Computed example of a mutant assay.
Amino acid sequence: MCNSPLSYSLIFSLSLSPRLGRRGVLVVGVGAVGGVGVALHFVRRLVVFLALRCVQAVLVQGIYVTGWTLAGELFPPRWRCRALIAFGMTRPLGVALGAGLGLSVQHWRGITLAAAVPLLVSLSYCWTIPESLRWLLTRGKTKRAREIAQHISARNHRPLPPTFHAHLDHLAAHEYLRVPWGSICTLFCTPRLRRHTIVVLYLW
C-alpha cells in the first residue's frame, strides 16, 4: 500500500533531503516511522489504521532511499558498489527477521509495537551517523565536511592523502556549488526522465 517509488522520491529525495541533509531526513524518518508504529498498536478503527499504514509505507521507503543515498555519498567510487550491495542486503534481512518476530509474538498489535520500539531506541545513537560530505560541499559547509572526513579517517586509522584538503576546497569552489536545487519538476524536465519516471511508477 502506498509503496510507490515516485511518492518517496518526490517527498524525500527531491524535496527534503537536498535541503535538510541526508542525516536529518533519515533521523526524522526513523522517528516518525517508530512513532506511527507505536500509534498502530493502540488504533481501534480500520480507517485510521489504513491511513497510518499508508503514511508509514511512504516514510519507510523514504528512509531506505535516503539511507541509500547517504551510504553512496560516504564511500569512494571503488568501494561504493560494495557498500550499496551491503546496504541493500539489510532489507531482505529485515524481512526475514520480521518473519521470525511474527512467529514469536503472534498477535499483530504486539508485532507493530515490537518493530517500532527498536526504531525509537536507535534515535539515541543517531548522532554517530556522519552527514554526507557531498551534501555539505553543495551547501558551502567546507569546514564541517573537513571535520567529518578527519573523524572518519581517524576512526579507520587511515591518514588522509596530502592533497585531500586542496581537492576538497576545489570541489567546494568550482564543482558542487554549481549543483542546482532539486525539485519535483526534475523528474519531468527532459523526455528521457519523464519516460523513466512513468515506467518506474507503472512497474511498482
Rank of each mutant, 00 (worst) to 15 (best):
L177I: 08
F87D: 07
L137C: 08
V117R: 01
V95S: 14
L193Q: 13
T66K: 05
L14V: 03
T138P: 00
G98C: 08
L20H: 01
L59A: 04
L46C: 04
N156F: 09
A83K: 01
P130R: 10
W79D: 11
R194D: 04
S183K: 10
V55H: 03
V58I: 15
Y176E: 09
H41I: 03
P77H: 08
W127N: 09
V25G: 00
R53A: 10
S7F: 02
H170G: 08
G182C: 05
L97V: 14
W108E: 15
F49I: 05
H151C: 07
S9N: 13
G37L: 02
F87G: 06
A115Y: 02
V179M: 06
W204R: 06
A115N: 07
S15I: 04
R78Q: 11
R45Q: 07
V48R: 05
M1S: 07
A57I: 11
E147W: 05
L14S: 03
V55C: 12
A114M: 12
R22C: 05
H167K: 11
P161E: 11
W108H: 13
L6A: 06
L97T: 13
V30C: 04
P76E: 14
R23G: 01
Y202F: 15
P18G: 07
G67A: 10
L171D: 12
S13W: 00
S122A: 14
A173Q: 14
L168Q: 06
L46E: 14
Y176S: 02
H174S: 13
G140R: 12
A172D: 03
R134L: 10
V38G: 02
R155E: 13
P180A: 06
S132C: 13
V55I: 08
T90K: 08
L50S: 13
L46R: 13
L113W: 04
E131D: 15
T190W: 05
L103V: 14
T66W: 03
Y64K: 06
L93Y: 06
G62A: 08
E131G: 07
P76A: 10
R194Y: 05
H167Q: 14
S9Q: 10
G100E: 06
S13I: 05
M89A: 15
A83N: 01
Y64T: 05
I85R: 09
W108S: 14
W181G: 03
W127H: 10
L168E: 06
R91M: 08
V58P: 00
V38Y: 01
F49C: 11
L26D: 03
P159S: 10
F12L: 11
I129K: 07
P92R: 15
H170I: 07
C2A: 14
Y64E: 11
F75C: 12
G31H: 03
G94Q: 12
L6W: 01
L123Q: 08
H167M: 09
S183Q: 06
H196T: 14
L123C: 08
A145V: 11
N156W: 04
V58F: 00
L14F: 04
P191H: 12
F75M: 14
G24P: 00
G100W: 03
R139G: 03
S122Y: 06
A154I: 08
G140L: 15
L187N: 02
L10D: 02
V179I: 10
V121E: 13
I11R: 00
L93F: 07
S153Y: 03
W181D: 12
A115V: 04
L193D: 09
Y64D: 12
R109Q: 13
V60C: 02
A149L: 09
G35N: 05
